[in-house]
Computed example of a mutant assay.
Amino acid sequence: MATFFRFWTRQAEARPFVTVAATEACLSACGDLLAQTIGKHVLVKPTTKDTPQEPKGYDLMRTARFVLFATCVSPIGVRWHRFLDKRFPIRSQTAWFKTRRKPSSSAFHLSASTLAARAKRRSEHRQTARQVGKRLVCDVLFYEPLMYAAFFSSMALMEGGGIEDAKYRVSVLLLPTYLAGLTISPIVQSINFAFIPLIYRVPFGSCFDLFWDSYLSWVNTEKLAMIEEQ
């Protein structure tokens, strides 16, 4: 595992866009196959005499569409994180991990250098918290809604629908999906922005997004069908 991690790091440093795109393709494929597996074996409608259920096979074209979208938008994710790093810089990515000495029984026993070091660490912590908060607000308010809109509209077009179908899918699925994402994405992205180096941020988020990709795949297919039935 360590060997693969070192190999991935070298490739990401040399070819960031290609490496991240390949990683996103693998993770999105796993996410869609997981969603299809859950839909096939878990979320199965009860069989009745009037509506017999035929076993469903895996829709590889559906997985291919999902992989194509993830691969195409991965460079946008890389550039977005670079923009956030440049626009809201953090002086030290490891500011949260700096060790703290135990306080003495009396403040008079502390040297001037120790007091200055503690004040500097507190200042770094506050600065890091502010910058992480700004990155998180921008990500939640701008990047995520645009990505959801791009995902649902792209799926509609790749499935053979037209512009009206893309507009309909975005209008029906965007808001509930965005609200559902707010339950988990701020936590994951706060960790991502505060602790993870820039080169690993997109793959780190994608590892957590493996299950979220499964949810998106389910929303784009099964939930849309449920809404249209109603």
Rank of each mutant, 00 (worst) to 15 (best):
A25S: 15
V73G: 02
K98V: 10
W80A: 12
W80N: 04
S123P: 01
V202S: 12
F151Y: 15
F88G: 07
H125C: 00
Y148R: 12
R82F: 09
P186A: 00
R6L: 00
I191V: 15
P197Y: 10
S171T: 07
R122V: 00
C30D: 03
L216Q: 09
L34E: 01
E159A: 13
P55C: 00
Q36R: 04
L110D: 00
D139H: 04
I199A: 12
A180P: 05
R91W: 06
S106V: 08
R62F: 10
Q127D: 15
V202L: 12
C30V: 14
D32N: 13
V44C: 11
G77F: 10
G162H: 02
C72N: 01
M1D: 11
F97W: 08
P89L: 11
L60A: 04
L141W: 02
V67F: 08
P55I: 01
L33K: 03
L27Q: 02
A25G: 14
S190D: 02
C138D: 12
A112R: 11
H81L: 13
S185M: 03
K49N: 12
A112Y: 04
V78K: 09
R121W: 06
S104I: 02
E144C: 09
G205H: 05
L175M: 14
D165L: 08
I38S: 05
V132R: 06
V73N: 00
F152C: 02
P103Q: 02
E159F: 04
I199Y: 08
Q11C: 11
W96K: 00
L157T: 05
S74I: 09
R126I: 07
A21G: 15
A119L: 02
Y143C: 13
D213Q: 14
Q131N: 11
A156V: 08
L84F: 03
S74V: 06
T51H: 14
R169A: 02
Q230N: 06
I199Q: 15
A116K: 07
A119E: 03
A25C: 10
S92M: 05
G77H: 06
I38K: 03
I38C: 10
V137E: 07
E159I: 05
D139M: 00
I191H: 03
S153Q: 04
M147L: 14
F195V: 05
K134C: 15
V202P: 02
T51Q: 14
I191D: 01
M158C: 03
A150Y: 07
E229I: 07
Y143T: 03
W80K: 04
D32Y: 11
L141D: 02
G181T: 01
E124M: 05
Q93Y: 01
A180Y: 09
T71I: 05
R100W: 08
F195A: 05
D209N: 15
P203I: 13
Q36M: 04
M61G: 14
C138N: 12
